[in-house]
């Protein structure tokens, strides 16, 4: 039985930049935990975060959490990154493309990256997944299957150039991003 209650979240506010380390957005950075990592396909992930008016959220921060190219979270690849949003509200990560991840039961999950968004005006962070357009496993992914078909596209990144993927995140309004909770 639960004895304690989890501490309440409070907004990250506008001044989280005091703990900003811009290099964390490059998971493959020199001197970082994945320095020299040679497996998999190197990719760039980006996207624009907008509010209910379609205005860019220039003071938001995005955290990324992903498996390695074999779909493993604990085999040595450090799958964590953090990116601030730029003057257009865009985040930018450099990483490797994750592999399919074991799901519940006998299921296999399509390759995906978890994104968490923190910002002034968000009392708690919101989390979503980024999938990759064209992956055959997307058709059978158990989490995508839970999302109504009309909104599924808000989780699927499009290729914009070889090795470059983009997924915009709409916090509110038309085409609002599907957020996930556990």
């Amino acid at each position: 039985m639960s004895k304690l209650v989890a501490t309440a979240a409070q907004t990250i506010g506008p001044y989280w930049a005091l703990i900003e380390h811009p290099e964390w957005a490059d998971l493959l950075r020199a001197g970082g935990p994945n320095e020299g990592y040679a497996k998999g396909e190197r990719i760039a992930l980006s996207g624009q975060i907008t509010d209910g008016d379609g205005a860019p959220c220039v003071d938001a921060v995005v955290e990324l959490w992903q498996a390695d190219p074999e779909g493993d979270y604990e085999a040595g690849f450090h799958g964590y990154g953090r990116s601030r949003c730029d003057a257009e509200g865009r985040f930018h990560f450099t990483t490797v493309k994750p592999g399919p991840v074991k799901g519940r039961g006998n299921a296999t999950q399509a390759p995906h990256v978890t994104l968490s968004i923190f910002a002034r005006g968000l009392m708690n962070h919101v989390s979503t997944r980024l999938y990759f357009a064209g992956e055959p496993l997307n058709e059978t992914d158990p989490v995508l299957a839970q999302v109504p078909a009309a909104r599924r596209g808000t989780l699927v990144a499009r290729p914009t150039a070889p090795g470059a993927w983009t997924l915009d995140i709409r916090l509110q309004g038309d085409n609002e991003t599907v957020f996930l909770e556990v």
Partner: peptide, 15 residues
Amino acid sequence: KRHPKQAPIRIAPTL
């Protein structure tokens, strides 16, 4: 203008 209007989708935890 920043809070989602739609409820989040609750999923069973995976790895």
